[in-house]
Amino acid sequence: MPRPAYLVPVGAVLICLALGACSGAEEPPAVTHRVIQGGAPGEAGEVLTQMPTIPDPEITADDVAFVRHMIVHHGQALQMTELVDERTGREDVPLFAERIRLSQEDEIRLMEEWLQTHRLSVLRIDDAGGGHGAHAVGEMPGMISEEQLAELAATDGEDFDRLFLRLMYAHHDGAVTMVEDLQQGNQGTDPVLWNLVVDIDSDQRIEMDRILQMQEQMGAGDRGAAESSGGGTGSD
Rank of each mutant, 00 (worst) to 15 (best):
S202G: 12
V10K: 07
M111R: 08
G11C: 02
H132E: 03
F66R: 06
L120F: 06
R166L: 14
E112P: 06
E112C: 13
A128N: 04
L78E: 00
V35D: 03
D56W: 12
T189H: 08
T60H: 04
Q79I: 00
T117L: 15
D56N: 13
L17Q: 08
D173V: 09
Q37C: 06
M140W: 03
S145C: 05
E158T: 10
D209W: 10
Y169Q: 01
M140H: 01
S23Q: 05
G138V: 02
F96M: 14
L165Q: 01
S145N: 06
M51W: 14
L123C: 03
R101Y: 05
Q79R: 11
R34Y: 12
P191W: 13
P141A: 00
L152A: 00
Q50H: 12
E207R: 12
M51N: 07
G129L: 04
A44Y: 02
A40Q: 13
M214V: 10
P4K: 12
G174Y: 09
T177M: 13
V84I: 10
M140A: 01
S145D: 02
Q116C: 10
H172C: 11
Y169M: 11
G130A: 12
M51I: 07
L193I: 10
G129Y: 06
Q215V: 06
S202V: 07
M51S: 10
